[in-house]
């Protein structure tokens, strides 16, 4: 196991970063968030040309058969750009469920970037409470009920639904996007009223969510890195009292501490992709989720008034960070899980 990045990962990073710099700088993300946040053209290039959609799909289904280690690097970059594309929801979460269900036909479409999928699970569900937000029941080949807070459902061609221990492909669900805290990854309420469902195979939802949680830590690292770097650049430029504000110790010490938190977030994210057991995932989520929020909050504060404005992109990062803190379990949920995972039982 290595915690470093390899050559393949660095090449992938460079390709994704280059594309995002060209096609989706924070200013253009900001421009589209209130009308049509998802960027289908950008996703088409990322998915098809760079090939990120098929990274986690085995070669037998037409994918790249790569590991979480490569997917983590893509997520770091997408986090840095708060890129409005359904990588995490389709190419990580739904893909994981489809691979486990051996849904080869659907996977082939995803791998080519022809279609995009969403898993009908609440973004607020966790490996420890996988059914939070879900009330779906199956009755003779049709589904009824609903799932709240589903990310990526509004842009998915294929909707797959876990019910009990099975995974279904569903036609004719109603997907209603709700105003969401995270402008760049809005969530929707998905309802089924006797929707026709096709059984795909078994589904261990807690395992799928744990996989998502481990990889989300890489996205959170990317968010935190953007916030730290953007703030550093700003405090070197911004003058008050005839000095760069970044020359005041009160500011420097805060940024040194933040840097140290981000350094440790990188180690945690790499451990969670290199050796994704329940402990490394819980450690990475309980650390990185908080670091991303803290980095965005520090970025806002250290930008002063401009950080509070709609026109500056820092709020996109704050909203992404705060919403992600709740995704796949809060830091507190993961720490609570560590009480048994790491043999640290609570009081009787």
């Amino acid at each position: 196991m290595t915690l470093l990045y390899g050559e393949v990962e660095e090449e992938l990073r460079a390709a994704v970063r280059g594309l995002l710099a060209d096609r989706c700088p924070p200013a253009s993300v900001l421009k589209r968030v209130e009308s049509d946040p998802y960027d289908p053209d950008l996703w088409k290039t990322l998915a098809g040309e760079i090939g990120v959609a098929g990274l986690l799909i085995p070669e037998q289904y037409g994918g790249a058969g790569a590991t979480a280690s490569e997917a983590g690097v893509v997520l770091e970059e997408l986090g840095r750009g708060v890129a409005p594309v359904p990588f995490l929801t389709s190419a990580v979460l739904a893909t994981r469920a489809l691979v486990a269900a051996e849904a080869g036909e659907l996977l082939a479409g995803l791998a080519e970037g022809r279609t995009t999928a969403a898993l009908a699970v609440s973004f607020a569900a966790s490996p420890y409470a996988p059914w939070r937000g879900s009330s779906v029941s199956v009755d003779g080949g049709t589904l009824s009920g609903g799932v709240s807070g589903v990310a990526g459902a509004d842009v998915a061609d294929v909707l797959v639904v876990p019910v009990g221990g099975e995974l279904y492909e569903v036609e004719g669900a109603s997907v209603e996007v709700v105003p969401s805290l995270d402008l760049t990854r809005p969530v929707a309420n998905v309802t089924f009223t006797g929707a026709s469902a096709r059984l795909l195979g078994p589904c261990d939802l807690a395992e799928v969510l744990r996989h998502g949680a481990g990889l989300l830590a890489s996205e959170q690292l990317g968010v935190a890195e953007w916030c730290l770097e953007t703030t550093l650049a700003y405090v070197k430029e911004r003058h008050q009292f005839a000095r760069p504000v970044g020359s005041f110790q009160a500011i420097k010490h805060r940024l040194a501490d933040l840097w140290l938190d981000v350094v440790r977030a990188k180690a945690a994210a790499r451990a969670a992709v290199a050796d994704a057991d329940a402990v490394t995932v819980a450690v990475a989520q309980s650390w990185n989720a908080g670091v991303a929020v803290h980095a965005a909050e520090e970025a806002l504060q250290l930008h002063g008034g401009i950080g509070m404005t709609w026109e500056h992109p820092v709020h996109l990062y704050l909203k992404r960070a705060k919403a992600s803190e709740m995704a796949f379990g809060t830091p507190g949920d993961h720490r609570e899980a560590l009480a048994s995972l790491a043999d640290l039982p609570g009081p009787a």
Binding site: L232, V235, K236, G246, S247, K252, L255, A256, W259
Partner: peptide
């Protein structure tokens, strides 16, 4: 720890030193 934060902020993060 205060001096170490100065060192990190100046040598790693490239922030300007105090006058």
């Amino acid at each position: 720890s205060e001096i170490l934060r100065n060192i990190i902020s100046e040598r790693v993060l490239g922030l300007p030193s105090e006058p």
